[in-house]
């Protein structure tokens, strides 16, 4: 298992380097010049040249690239063009909110989606199965911002159970949790739909396998057959979907953070876009790419936990 982890870590390194390279050239190719943001569009040629020199933009591309790579690899993402504060600080301020939102959505998705998918597979073509499938289709078809608004209307505005505007930046843990519930449920329900679907179909496949018949022929009780013999095998595709969907979840969290007015990475991205904060966007892209690489790494490591055949490779 240790060798497997080391191998996966080594593979992640070139991926990350490639991502940094793409981000660097992507920002250079994108139209627009950051100097206009700093100086306004009436600036003189000398002023522009001076800023270019200050930002190092007059140097050859390759020198800029090597410089970018070495500073990023040292953990320095530079300063925001707008606030002039270090990007790391801006990100570190809001990152916990995005992490708590994503993890609670993931938790809701797995804790509800997995048993629902298993139950649907066990009761294939019965009422429970149909209900679960209709629910999951609804969950998959609703855009996150629509369901967010509906949740707000029902539970915040009509029922007053939760705050309309999340005062997430608070020291009081209870109000922080209460501000988290609706956004987490909003993202979590979509996750439930994904997890349920894949858990159901993978469970149906596994229940037809020979080794399930072997377990039953040993007299293993039905409950144990499902939860130990079938689930262990059915989890492999579920892990894949959860891993892939974490990327989508981070994208959906942008919309959710805006509708619920929560601080977070998504909110930061939209603000930087509005203010054309190029260095901030560059930094955020690096951070998102980093998160995705980490998630993929964790997904691969989870495979190793679930499937002994993967561990050996």
């Amino acid at each position: 298992m240790l060798i497997y982890i080391v191998k996966r870590l080594l593979v992640a390194v070139p991926t990350l380097l490639a991502v940094l390279t793409v981000v660097f050239f992507f920002v250079r190719i994108a139209p627009g010049d950051p100097t206009f943001i700093i100086l306004g569009d009436q600036a003189s040629q000398q002023a522009i040249a001076a800023v270019h020199h200050e930002l190092g933009l007059d140097r050859p591309m390759l020198v800029q690239y090597l410089d970018f790579m070495s500073t990023v690899l040292q953990g320095d993402l530079g300063n925001s063009l707008v606030t002039h504060r270090p990007i790391w600080n801006e990100v570190a301020n809001v990152l916990p909110y995005t992490i708590e939102l994503t993890l609670s959505a993931l938790f809701i998705g797995v804790v509800l989606g997995l048993p629902l998918g298993i139950a649907a597979a066990r009761h294939r073509n019965e009422t429970l199965d149909y209900a679960a499938r209709i629910f999951s289709l609804l969950g998959l078809s609703f855009p996150a911002f629509v369901s967010a608004i509906m949740l707000l209307l029902a539970f915040a505005i009509e029922l007053h159970w939760f705050p309309v505007i999340s005062e997430a930046r608070t020291g009081d843990p209870l109000s922080r949790v209460s501000a988290l519930v609706l956004p987490a449920v909003n993202l979590g329900l979509i996750m439930v739909a994904y997890v349920m679907r894949v858990a159901r179909s993978s469970m149906l496949g596994v229940l037809g396998e020979d080794y399930i018949r072997t377990a039953r022929s040993k007299g293993v009780p039905a409950r144990v057959v499902i939860w130990r013999h079938a689930l262990g095998n059915a989890l492999i595709p579920v892990v894949t979907v959860v891993g892939l969907y974490l990327g989508v979840l981070i994208g959906n969290s942008v919309l959710t953070e805006i509708v619920f007015n929560r601080p977070g990475l998504g909110k930061l991205i939209v603000n930087s876009l509005n203010q054309r904060d190029y260095t901030m966007l560059e930094g955020l892209m690096v951070i998102y790419a980093f998160i995705i690489v980490i998630v993929n790494l964790l997904t691969d490591l989870t495979y190793g936990l679930v499937d002994p055949r993967v561990r050996q490779r």
Binding site: Y211, T214, N233
Partner: peptide
């Protein structure tokens, strides 16, 4: 089913045709 579970693997047991697929791949 509950009563059969007490008999299967106990009084009657079965060996299947496909040894490659009849054992659970994720259990020792």
């Amino acid at each position: 089913e509950t009563e059969m579970e007490k008999i299967r693997g106990n009084a009657i047991s079965m060996i299947f045709q496909e040894p490659m697929t009849s054992l659970n791949p994720v259990l020792p």
